[in-house]
């Protein structure tokens, strides 16, 4: 079982990508689960979302406390909370930033320049790039994550840009 925890500010699309990761997992033949953790529903407030991917049926319904992958869509959150809390021994923290902040120096963390990548591909939001990175970290085939993303977002975003941005995010972990 891979457990994923997403950190973001409400409105950054963390819930969407947490579900897309699950969708990709399902396409890859795994059992999955995705759920957001809502506080007061205010745009900009820190929020979390979770994804579980497993070879066995997922039955538990508690929030992910010991994540294998933590994805931080908003680098400023790193200063507000311990995003690495409960990180499993071989877990990894992926942060949407060009340079890792000091506070994560002792953690197995990776900086993913997702916003830059997204802009390079003409996308406004970096969440899909981070999705690519998360899929790579979770061992989900690239094509599954691309298909899942295009299926859900293809109407609003250019499919080729989407695939390319996800691939580049995926490649960051390769």
């Amino acid at each position: 079982m891979k457990e994923v925890r997403w950190h973001a500010r409400a409105g950054q699309g963390a819930k969407t990508v947490s579900q897309l990761l699950a969708e990709a997992g399902l396409l890859a033949g795994s059992s999955v689960q995705a759920f957001p953790e809502y506080g007061p529903e205010r745009r900009g407030a820190p929020m979390r979302a979770y994804t579980r991917i497993s070879d066995k049926a997922i039955r538990r319904h508690d929030p992910v406390a010991a994540p294998d992958i933590v994805i931080v869509l908003e680098p400023t959150l790193v200063n507000e909370m311990n995003v690495a809390e409960g990180l499993s021994d071989d877990g990894v923290v992926l942060v949407d930033t060009n340079e890792l902040p000091e506070s994560l120096k002792g953690v197995n963390a990776r900086a993913i320049p997702a916003l830059k990548i997204a802009h390079d591909h003409g996308l406004k939001f970096s969440n899909v790039v981070m999705l690519g990175a998360a899929a790579a970290a979770g061992g989900i085939p690239l094509v599954n994550i691309q298909d899942a993303a295009v299926k859900k977002l293809g109407k609003r975003l250019d499919a080729d840009s989407l695939r390319a941005a996800i691939a580049e995010g995926y490649a960051c972990l390769a």
Binding site: L26, Q33, A34, F35, Y38, H61
Partner: peptide, 12 residues
């Protein structure tokens, strides 16, 4: 069904 835990949780 449990609010949020199921109502807002995506499962296959």
């Amino acid at each position: 069904q449990d609010g949020f835990t199921l109502t807002h949780s995506e499962e296959p």
